[in-house]
């Protein structure tokens, strides 16, 4: 059995950032593993720990810089990694879910996984759509926003819980092969061990171009265009208490007491 885990390296934005046209100034970006994907990786690795016959393969769309993040996934127990990239992809905005669905679908066709795990969303563009679109493209079953998984490989069924709004969970059975989008909190992602980090250096990252995947460069063409980026206008009416911590706390305490907080 094979589990494919989609792993994205995303940028997080530092405090006091500046904009550079329709992007954030590179100086204020820090690159890291997408938080949701960390839980997806852990889900895959735990499945493999429970069953020796499960191979876990990660797939990423991203530049060479992303290999550091991919190595982290390998260090945590992913068996091997695929990174899809070339000059055509580097020049594209990649906001169109259809493009990503086609790329992942091509990898799925080559790898034939039984289960595909993605994060619910990526921190950077926050579309939250790729996993489910991939399922449709591949003809797989799917479940979005999964916070518990019990895999019955023999029956070909994934018993999942979907985290709905307001503290309600939906219990769903999904036929394999399937794509599950994994929610944070489903497990406790491990830290990579030193041994894992050492072993990851020897594992293979297979770089695939559009041509390798049999895709036409036109796959990146999209009618979706990012035209503006700006800091949201603050509608804030906040009254800030300034000064050192003691002075600020004293002023805040006065207001809180006026509101009846702390009254015996």
């Amino acid at each position: 059995m094979k589990v494919l885990v989609a792993v994205k390296e995303v940028a997080t934005v530092e405090e006091g950032f500046e904009l550079d046209g329709t992007t954030i100034d590179e100086r204020y970006l820090e690159y890291d593993l997408n938080e949701w994907d960390d839980y997806a990786i852990e889900t895959g690795v735990q499945l493999a720990e429970d069953d020796d016959d499960i191979e876990v393969v990660s797939v990423s769309i991203g530049p060479e810089r992303a290999e550091e993040t991919i190595r982290m996934a390998l260090a945590k127990g992913v068996d091997r990694a695929i990174r899809v990239w070339d000059d055509t992809l580097a020049a594209a905005e990649l906001l169109d879910v259809r493009t990503k669905a086609e790329l992942f679908d091509a990898v799925i066709e080559a790898e034939a996984p039984d289960l595909v795990l993605t994060g619910v969303q990526a921190h950077d563009d926050s579309f939250g759509a790729t996993g489910v679109a991939v399922a449709e493209a591949a003809g797989f079953g799917h479940a979005a926003v999964v916070n518990a998984l019990e895999l019955d490989a023999d029956a070909g069924t994934a018993h999942v819980r979907r985290e709905l709004e307001g503290g309600v969970e939906e219990l769903t059975d999904v036929e394999l092969p399937a794509v599950l989008t994994i929610q944070t909190g489903i497990n406790e992602p491990r830290y990579a061990s030193l041994r894992g980090i050492r072993m990851a250096q020897r594992k293979e990252i297979d770089v695939q171009t559009l041509a390798d995947l049999g895709l036409d460069p036109a796959v990146v063409d999209s009618p979706i265009e990012l035209t503006d980026m700006y800091e949201p206008e603050s509608e804030s009416n906040v009254e800030l208490f300034e000064g050192d911590a003691n002075a600020a706390a004293e002023n805040l305490a006065t207001v809180l007491r006026e509101k009846g907080v702390g009254a015996e």
Binding site: V97, V120, F127, A129, T130, V132, A133, A143, V145, P223
Partner: peptide
Amino acid sequence: LDYAPAIAERLGMPLVT
């Protein structure tokens, strides 16, 4: 988010979420 990406993909539509 459990069906919108699937129907957009099936109908070949661009999707913005």
